[in-house]
Design a binder for these strands. Structure first.
Length: 708
DNA sequence: GTGCCTCGAGTTCC
DNA sequence: CTCGAGGCAC
């Protein structure tokens, strides 16, 4: 059996049966591993199966939905917890801090849905529990998988621990065949105090706050310890479902409660932003008496059909927002201001603080953004902190933005030591001595050294091995730092990673004989590198670290050019500002001139170009995956929307068209297949007529895609 | 030119 | 997680 024969050779039918076969093998291996604790196959073989499964899925993404196992494919690692890919991503929420942001949220939702301010729109408001989120998968009414949120994409499997939590039912009666219940694991304040007292008595570590205690308790390798911890659970959402729970958020919560899950009794139905704000004020007033920590209120559009229409941005749903309570503040001394150099050369000032506890966490660093922020004004020159600047030695007020990132809110001028002067941004890179320049209209100062600057080179390499790029296991930030400075076996460019094993073999002192490395870990590292020699086009483009090219834009480029050969040829032939290759590039919807120029410039810079060529020579670059299924009438077609759309917003129309496999462009060209013109269509309609492009109105479009 | 919506880049602590 | 700014519609 050849697990590694080419995925690219499979046709769709073969892929479907192969997925089913692999799913069977993986399921059997999972059962053996989790239940009997006696694996039938080696970890390496399991990994090979899993990789092949993922490769086929990546190539035929629309087959993914056919297989309910997808969410459970997880490799048991050597230590710690196995990972599970969530069948439906666990997203985070956009945050709001002011009442105006809540009314803006309502306005945005209405605009997207095409509702007037007068039309009714129901919301829910529920307390935002300060714990950690957990996804519980039930099949046939039995709890089969519990996974933490992780990065939203992949979480850790904590099923055995979840089973010990009294609030979480082991079985459900009358539930859908498949249901993923999502909610928050938390610890009540009284239980937390008691636990900490007990921990202190027995000389064990105490926890800083209930959330840390809950997180630490859930992530115990020994479920017996979790069982002894007073964890609780509130259900508030769901992931994969074999049948809908209800038509509204409130209805779904009632259904979850009927299935035996605790749901928060303070959840309220609200008929508009004023009611949402009233619910917020009520919860804020009750906060101290609840017995558990909450850090804000979550607002959701109640109607689930509307939630579906609103859909998602890159990382957050459009139909929900978290209104956070004001952050806790603390005063401390600013000891120094240091400079960090990022991968784009940006010089970032970082505050070194006298350690201080803010919201249950000891903070000793804080971001200072840029020189304007330190000087007390924002990018537009508007004063912040009433224009007070920040100087080393100052007495400063610290808070954690979004309860995470430490920032400096204010300065007490009365406490300022005498004889200080305003802090000045260095005009040379502290890492390489190159000039640090601030372009007109830019808020950051950048090191001009490029790849000559060791700090930039290292940061570029860290980006390269990052999770959305090459994601090489065993080669993280720390290892990159070490290899960059290593004289015997250096990694200074991305291509060096892929020659690592061969160079090591030729060295008198082998890596496996060094301190900190063993035979096994070196073998694993080399294998992880080998696994990534084959790389998806979008990952490669993202990994190059071109300014302005993040994950989304890299995927956009990969999808537009399909293959590395086509992309590379076009970028090589292109000149900035003119010519057919340039026109094609800036014609991509969502990609403008600044971004396009950055890509073309990179391919024409000698040093960058040599690094790219040396890298690609080491790789097998996979073409972009085939588009959405070809069974929709607009699949593969290039569509342009113009004029005012009356029954849907432009963003919604675009999202819907893309889901059906169409490419949505911003302007009409000879490559346009269809122009959807609403009232008020101007030059685009004229151009379409000129080019002979089919023009239809909104109703005809809805009929075409089957939206009656 | 203005205003919205996203994305990109940099950041902390566990 | 936030800020700045690119891209696009109006």
């Amino acid at each position: 059996m050849s697990e590694d024969h080419a995925v690219s050779a499979l046709d769709e039918d073969a892929a479907r049966s192969e997925l089913a076969r692999l799913a069977g093998l993986l399921a059997a291996a999972d059962r053996a591993y989790h239940q009997a604790d006696a694996p039938e196959i080696s970890d390496a073989d399991y990994d090979a199966l899993k990789r092949r499964y993922a490769a086929i899925e990546a190539r035929f993404p629309h087959l993914r939905a056919l297989d309910s196992r997808t969410g459970m494919v997880g490799a048991p690692p050597a230590e710690g917890f196995a990972k599970a890919v969530h069948a439906v991503r666990m997203l985070s929420l956009e945050n709001a801090f002011a009442a105006t942001e809540v009314t803006a949220f309502d306005a945005r939702v209405r605009r997207y849905l095409g509702l007037t301010p007068e039309e009714p729109l129901a919301y829910t408001a529920e307390p935002k529990i300060d714990g950690l989120s957990l996804s519980l998968r039930y099949e046939g009414g039995r709890l089969v998988l519990a996974a933490t949120r992780g990065d939203g994409e992949t979480g850790e499997i904590v099923t055995a621990n979840a089973r010990t939590i009294a609030d979480i039912p082991a079985t459900l009666a009358g539930a859908p065949e498949l249901i993923e219940v999502r909610g928050e694991v938390y610890m009540a304040q009284a239980d937390f105090a008691e636990l900490n007292a007990r921990q202190a008595e027995t000389g064990e570590r105490t926890f800083a706050n209930p959330r840390n205690a809950a997180a630490g308790s859930l992530r115990q390798l020994d479920p017996a310890i979790t069982a002894a911890r007073p964890l609780r659970f509130f259900a508030y959402a769901w992931g994969a479902l074999s049948e809908p729970l209800a038509g509204t958020q409130m209805g779904a919560l009632a259904r979850l409660a009927a299935l035996g899950f605790p749901t928060n009794p303070l959840t309220r139905a609200c008929d508009g932003p004023q009611a949402l704000l009233a619910a917020y004020r009520a919860l804020e007033a009750q906060r101290a008496t609840l017995g558990y920590d909450i850090d804000g209120v979550v607002y959701k559009v109640d109607d689930l059909a509307l939630q579906r229409r609103l859909g998602f941005r890159a990382a957050t749903p459009r139909w929900a927002i978290a209104h956070k309570f004001p952050a806790e503040l603390a005063w401390t001394r600013l000891l120094a201001i240091n400079i960090q150099v990022g991968r784009t050369g940006a010089l970032s000032p970082v505050a070194r603080l006298q350690p201080v506890t803010v919201g249950g966490v000891v903070v000793s660093n804080a971001t200072l953004h840029n020189e304007d922020y330190i000087a007390g004004r924002d990018a537009r020159g508007t004063p912040i902190r009433e224009g007070r600047d920040i100087r080393p030695g100052d007495w400063v007020q610290v808070y954690r933005a979004g309860d995470v990132i430490p920032k400096i809110a204010d300065v007490d001028l009365a406490e300022r030591p005498p004889g200080t002067s305003p802090w000045v941004m260095p005009d040379r890179c502290p890492e390489c001595g190159s000039d640090a320049l601030r372009e007109a209209g830019d808020s950051v100062r950048r090191c001009s050294g490029g790849l000559i600057c060791p700090a930039q080179a290292v940061e570029r390499l860290k980006h390269f091995v990052g999770r959305a790029a090459f994601d090489i296991e065993g080669l993280g930030a720390k290892q990159i730092e070490a290899f960059y400075r290593d004289d015997q076996l250096p990694i200074r460019t991305p291509a060096d990673i892929f020659t690592l094993a061969a160079r090591d073999a030729a060295n008198p002192t082998r890596l496996k004989d060094r301190d900190g490395y063993g035979e096994r870990s070196v073998q694993k590292l080399f294998q992880a590198i080998e696994d990534r020699r084959t790389i998806a086009l979008h990952r490669l483009i993202f990994a190059l670290g071109i300014p302005h090219i993040g994950e989304s834009t890299a995927a956009l480029l990969a999808d537009s050019y399909r293959s590395w050969a086509a992309f590379e040829a076009a970028m090589t032939a292109a000149t900035i500002g003119e010519g057919p290759e340039w026109q094609a590039l800036v014609g991509i919807d969502g990609l403008g001139e600044v971004t396009a120029a950055a890509v073309v410039a990179t391919f024409h810079q000698e040093r960058e170009r040599m690094a790219i060529d040396a890298l690609v020579a080491q790789l097998m670059v996979e073409d972009a995956a085939p588009r959405a299924p070809a069974d929709s009438p607009v699949a593969g077609k290039t569509v342009v929307f113009t004029g005012t759309l009356e029954r849907m917003s432009r963003a919604e129309a675009k999202a819907r068209a893309e889901a059906l496999g169409a490419r949505v462009a911003g302007s009409v060209s000879a490559r346009t297949d269809l122009l959807v013109a609403g009232p008020g269509a101007g030059s685009k309609a004229a151009k379409a007529a000129e080019l002979g492009v089919t023009v239809i109105d909104e109703d005809a479009w809805r009929a075409l895609i089957g939206d009656a």
